Amino acid sequence: MKKFLHVLWCSLFILLATGQLHAQYSENGWLLGGGFNFIDDSGTGGSEAFNFSDNWSSVAFPSRFSLGYLLDNGMIFQGFASYNRYSEDVMVNGFAQQTDWNYYALDGLVGYGFKNLIDPRGWFDPYVQTGMGLKRLAGNNELTFNLGGGFNFWINERFAVNLSTLGKWGLDEGNDNHIQHGLGVVFKPDFKKLFAGNGGDLKDGAKGIVKKEETPQDDLLASTEPVAVAPDPSVKEIEQRVKDSIAAVMAKQRSLDQKAEIITQRLKKDLAGISRVSFSTNSSYLEENDYEQLDQLIAFMNYYPSAVIEIRGNVDARGTEEYNAWLSVRRAGRIKTYLTRSGIHPDRIQAVGSIKNKTESPCQDDQPCSDEELAKSRQVEYVLLDY
């Protein structure tokens, strides 16, 4: 008996643990079942499982009924009541009976269904179950340990055909072990819909009368007056509606364009207000005071996290074109490196060279310039590309 109890607790633990790991059934719900049961108490240990005539006992009417509850995690709790009859000449524990015996059983089972592992919306629903039972045969009562499984074949969301097999091990002296098979149907009622009637509220509960709310359709059906039908719209009316719809879409687009322009101007204004680095002559290295100016640019990029800018490294008018092109690219690259090391994504920065300052530089077309004017022409440019 201790061995069977040990197996029972292990089975319950596996079922409960498995039930917490998988997807959920569509909803909780009660399960009502009924059908036939067949018992193999021949003592052959399943070696003659299909010897129906000698080993199986059954009756010709529905003899098994169940009530259960299905949780949305797949756990099933069920209670069964069954009746059977051992007729004479049927093998019981290896011996042929000499008389008829009535068989009664009450079983409480907990199970787990695997439908969600296969197809939550499908019709195939295998399950396993275990539990305890009490049987009465030949005037003797005996506790049993039960372990088995079965299949529900769902015809729709409410009805299923059920096939099941349950091994039963006796826990009292004598250990009358046997197998009980089931064939029947399972019904999952929708109690919410049942008690709610046709979807209306329950009113006048004491009288049990359900009042249906009146709808405009009911008024039309009950009316004997002719109903005015709106005429079909003319072609001109349809064209006007289309024009109005197009005008509304275009107006909305203009509004969006205006908002985008306002945002763009604001970003350009903020970017223009940032102090710009002016490199020393023939140098692409950043100096101490340059970092303070670049920190302003970093603040701008963080404040507008979707902004994309172009950094143009400028040079003054002196030097060859080839040298100035090389130097301008290095200057823009130095600034991009500092920004990316400070956390700005490199995809938001384009570093390009420019051999001619495209801002308002005083040193154009080889005009003589002072040192201050030359320094101004070496200032980098920040250009807004996108936001």
Rank of each mutant, 00 (worst) to 15 (best):
M1K: 14
V7S: 06
L8K: 02
T18I: 11
Q24T: 11
N28S: 09
N28V: 06
D41I: 03
T44Q: 12
S53G: 14
W56K: 01
S58E: 07
V59S: 02
F61H: 09
P62R: 10
N73H: 10
N73E: 07
G74N: 03
Y83W: 09
D89N: 15
M91H: 04
G111C: 06
N116A: 10
I118R: 07
P120G: 08
P126V: 12
R136T: 11
N140D: 15
G149T: 05
G150C: 03
F153Q: 04
N156R: 11
G167T: 05
N175R: 07
D176P: 01
P189A: 06
D204E: 11
I209G: 02
K211M: 06
T215S: 10
V227A: 09
P231C: 05
E237V: 10
A248T: 10
V249G: 04
E261Y: 12
E261D: 13
E261L: 13
Q265N: 10
G273R: 15
R276K: 15
V277Y: 01
N282A: 12
S284P: 00
E287Q: 08
F300E: 06
V308S: 08
V315W: 00
N324A: 07
R330N: 07
K336H: 13
K336P: 07
S342N: 15
P346L: 05
I355C: 07
C369P: 04
D371M: 09
D371H: 11
E373D: 10
K376W: 06
Q379E: 15
Y382T: 02
L384V: 09
